[in-house]
Write a protein that binds this DNA or RNA. Structure first.
Length: 886
RNA sequence: GGGCAGUUGGCUCAGCUUGGUUAGAGCAUCUGCCUUACACGCAGAGGGUCGCUGGUUCGAAUCCAGCACUGCCCACCA
């Protein structure tokens, strides 16, 4: 019988077969007509920049666990999958690919380039979907979405118009973060920060009509070409007399007014600051306050423009070098100091960004932020772990306007139209036939696209058909939980809450679960460029999808970053194999018997181990429920893992082996079959969300289970309170301890594992003796006992090893086997342990304050500990004495 | 500069909310076993006094304060 089931679990076939059947059955599809309560998750759409990595594997495993759990609890589960066009990110990777072929996007032109990007998207899209399927993700593939789908694009358009009409979108000529490589603006949130070793250059500006100099310090000397003033602090006595006068900009010989502004820090540098309104955010504001000219010296690609005089055409850093050189030659460079500087870089290509003056579109964020703040304060929205709500709130409470226009090609075209005749700007759903101002028909659409987050912030509702009032929207929105990493709390999570409140009047999800970032064994973030990334498919091929899933969950502590190496997946593979083999044992013993999936027998008919495992099972199910409800995946998995491996396999299955043996009656066998079969099926139900494939495969090894039957249809197991039996669990602990003690003595005395030994248990505890007698057969089998004697007045046989346990003593006669020295060492070690323990308890009990102030029961407990320890010591001493008598 | 998180055996973590069992687990290590489900296994063992300092308390890994270190996030000081 056993031969029919392979000795080791073979994941690949099971994965292929079951995934296909699940999809065909339609169980992943959420029905809008269903009477069942909805439970919705929308996937954080992966970027089409690349295929998925282990971080995604973790993210999607967690979502799948939750959605499968809810589905089996008879919710109308909907997991909406999809991918994100990821504007700048995708454009950058495709461009980099082009460069390898020696081409630029400008050479190709917009249309041809976009075709390339679409082809890229199709390829990655397909591979991403395939990866999700291989992981076992139970997504509703019929509803797969892409951020540039027609429907979603329509939502983007409506949102732009809506905000524009509400005066929440405006156009402004401001300093934005400019990436000279990507040739686009970036929002504040799209920057990375990097600390670099740089210098502070002290430059001497000649005072007009004098031979004296005013020295200023700067980290970006080339920007002096755009200086339009020098500022000092109005309180600064050193410079008071200079305010209102002028200085001469070296090289370009431009006259700069010396102005006073509170912004200037008297302590820093020389106390005088060069002001470059077009290239520094602070200087921009000072420029506004003092009516200074904003002189732009840069082209959009980071080279200097004609305003830079002889430096025009040079790259910004080349210009810096030659400018500094010239300053030196002219004697205008006072000194150069080392200086640690923090620079902002483009989050997609790492180029240092420049503050750059340009006309862009912005969203006024403050009015949108309020409901998002309120959602947390009212408890309508919760973060797990909770402390992330602080991060979320901080950003919302200090929110700044959002620059949404991008000078890219890949993305949603901005619905802005220009009249070529009168330069009138129009915002419209489609291209206007004529200019609203001059009537001209020469109208063209603005070449800019929208920030990629301008479509993703609509994801939870645009994917269900908004702005149409669809049945999907009605049934599945708002969603229940969102799973993501902390990096995008600002970029995405907060903005989704804002958008949902504004456009649907609802908070898009009730729970946000923030999981850690997957790191390698050295704690390094996994990334392609570092070469430490692991491809989920590789892991699935090698260890199986279930192994990958459960390993990731077991390795991810709540709220912290998991450290993952390939070795981490062995734990999951081993576990899958353990379950497989436990099932092999149980199922192969059915031998024609058909276990029921609902067990509700008279508990008194059962054997004690049966009652015990049912109690442990009920408790475990209850715990898993609690932990999953609280988004504590790691603990939920651990509780199930321990129950299965330790309670079920190590203890229960070992205990029922005799009842399944050839000497047992059919009646006894059937009882063991019924309970082990029932517990096994409950375990499969419990584990199914975590490890869907192996559990489904095992379920189908059960008699009479049809191909079209699914574990999910059995539903989520109920924690049956009537099974819980705390007293029996306590009794079992006692028996387990006795068995362990016997095993320890045997092992330490080098009793060969195959050899059975007589065991005597001496105890004056009548209740304990009763329990031991009731479970005698288990002690005999698991302790490999030849003859077990339990009694009050037992004498220690000569030449026996002994052990002291809470309820008494254990003797194992070892005639001819006992090594006296070995036994002495063992006993003395034990004695030392007890003595040091006794000392501690004694000290406590000698403390008057303790006796006076500690609660009664604590004192009682200590006294009992004391008596027990003292008792043990007496016994150990006696045993040692006997030893020396030999 | 501000905020958040963390600091427990060789490694990764649990315990800390509600202070009181001889501080747990997995991996790794050591010993012995192919015991008729599983060597991707079984049994046993060794190993930590809980970052530091001080306080509260009869009693602190657990509460409070300060400090140190690590990581992350935010921030316009040239």
């Amino acid at each position: 019988m056993l031969k029919e089931i392979p000795k080791a679990y073979e994941p690949h076939k099971a994965e292929e077969v079951w995934y296909q059947r699940w999809v065909e059955s339609g169980m992943f599809h959420g029905s809008v007509d269903s009477e069942k309560r909805p439970y919705t998750i929308v996937i954080p759409p992966p970027n089409v920049t690349d295929v998925l990595h282990l971080g995604h594997a973790l993210n999607n495993t967690l979502q799948d666990i939750l959605i499968r759990w809810r589905r089996s609890m008879n919710y109308e589960a909907e997991w909406m999958p999809g991918v994100d066009h990821a504007g700048i990110a995708t454009q950058v990777v495709v461009e980099k690919n082009l460069i390898k072929e020696g081409k630029t996007r400008q050479q190709l032109g917009r249309d041809k380039f976009l075709k390339k990007v679409w082809a890229w998207k199709e390829d990655k899209f397909e591979r991403i979907i395939n990866q999700l399927r291989r992981m076992g993700c139970s997504c509703d593939w019929e509803r797969t979405r892409f951020t540039m789908d027609d429907g979603l694009s329509k939502a983007v358009l409506e949102v732009f118009i809506h905000l524009y009409e509400k005066d929440l979108i405006y156009r402004g000529n401001r300093l934005v973060n400019w990436c000279p490589r990507c040739l686009t603006s970036l929002s504040d949130d799209e920057l990375e920060r990097e600390d670099i070793d740089s210098h502070l250059w002290y430059i001497k500006y000649k005072l007009k009509g004098s031979d004296e100099y005013l020295t200023v310090a700067t980290t970006r000397p080339e920007t002096m070409l755009g200086d339009t003033a020098i500022a000092v602090n109005p309180k600064d006595k050193r410079f008071k007399k200079l305010v209102g006068k002028s200085a001469i900009l070296p090289i370009l010989d431009r006259e700069l007014p010396i102005i006073a502004d509170d912004y200037v820090d008297m302590e820093f540098g020389t106390g005088a600051v060069k002001i470059t309104p077009a290239h520094d955010v602070n200087d921009f504001e000072i420029g506004d306050r003092h009516g200074l000219e904003k002189l732009n010296i840069l082209n959009n690609d980071g080279t200097l423009n004609d305003n830079a005089g002889k430096f025009a055409g040079m790259d910004r850093y080349d210009a810096r070098r030659s400018l500094v050189e010239e300053l030196k030659q002219r004697g205008c460079l006072d000194k150069v100091e080392d200086y640690k500087l923090s620079v902002s870089t483009c989050y997609r290509c790492n180029t240092v960004v420049e503050p750059y003056l340009s006309v862009q579109w912005f969203v006024r964020m403050e009015p949108l932020a309020e409901p998002a703040i309120e959602a947390i304060k009212s408890g309508e929205l919760k973060f797990h772990p909770d402390h992330w709500s602080k991060t979320y709130l901080y950003w919302l409470e200090n929110i700044r306007d959002w620059c949404i226009s991008r000078q890219l090609w890949w993305g949603h075209r901005i619905p802005v139209y220009h009249c070529k005749d009168c330069a009138e700007i129009m915002v419209a759903r489609e291209i206007p036939k004529s200019c609203s101002k001059c009537g001209s028909s020469k109208i063209e659409q603005d070449p800019d696209v929208l920030d990629t987050w301008f479509s993703s912030w609509l994801w939870p509702f645009s994917t269900f058909g908004w702005p149409e009032k669809t049945p999907e929207l009605n049934k599945f929105f708002p969603t229940k939980s969102l799973f993501t990493a902390s990096e995008i709390i600002y970029l995405w999570v907060a903005r989704m809450v804002m958008a949902s409140s504004e456009f649907t009047g609802k908070i898009p999800f009730s729970h946000v679960y923030i999981h850690g970032t997957v790191r390698d064994a050295n704690g390094e973030k996994m990334s392609k460029s570092k070469g430490n990334g692991i491809d989920p498919i590789e892991i699935i091929d090698k260890y199986g999808a279930d192994a990958m899933r459960i390993s990731l969950v077991l390795a991810t502590p709540e709220g912290q970053d998991p450290y993952i190496s390939e070795k981490s997946f062995e734990q999951g593979r081993n576990f899958a194999n353990k379950i497989w083999n436990a099932s092999r044992l149980v199922i192969s013993n059915f031998d024609g018997f058909e276990p029921k999936y609902e067990l509700d027998p008279e508990l008194s008919d059962l054997d004690l181990p049966d009652i015990w495992i049912l109690s442990r099972l009920a408790k475990t199910i209850g715990q898993v429920n609690n932990y999953l409800s609280g988004f504590r995946f790691n603990t939920a998995a651990k509780v199930a893992y321990d129950f299965i491996w330790k309670d079920f396999c190590d203890w229960y299955l070992e205990m029922i082996k005799t009842r399944l043996g050839k000497d047992a009656s059919e009646e006894v066998k059937n009882q063991a079959r019924a309970v082990s079969g029932f517990v096994l099926i409950e375990i499969m139900r419990l584990l199914h969300p975590f490890m869907p494939f192996v559990t489904e495969e095992i379920y189908h090894l059960f008699p009479k289970v049809k191909e079209s039957d699914f574990l999910n249809d059995l539903g989520w197991p109920e924690p049956k309170i009537k099974f819980i039996n705390d007293k029996l669990e306590k009794d079992f602990e006692l028996v387990q301890n006795i068995i362990s003690a016997i095993r320890t003595i045997r092992s330490e005395m080098d009793v060969p594992p195959g050899k059975k030994a007589d065991v005597l248990i001496k105890t004056s505890d009548k209740k304990a003796a009763e329990i031991l007698k009731e479970l005698e057969i288990q002690i005999v089998n698991l302790g490999r006992v030849k003859e077990l004697t339990i009694g009050e007045d037992l004498k220690k046989p000569p030449l026996s090893a002994s052990g002291v346990v809470a309820i008494g003593e254990i003797y194992i006669p070892l005639e001819g086997l006992i090594d006296l020295e070995n036994e002495r060492i063992r006993l003395e070690k034990e004695l030392a342990k007890k003595k040091s323990f006794l000392k501690r308890v004694k000290k406590k009990l000698a403390n008057k304050d303790f006796l006076e102030r500690a609660p009664e029961d604590v004192i009682e407990a200590e006294k009992e500990k004391y008596d027990q320890a003292e008792n043990s010591i007496t016994k150990l001493n006696k045993n040692l004495e006997m030893l020396s008598g030999w």
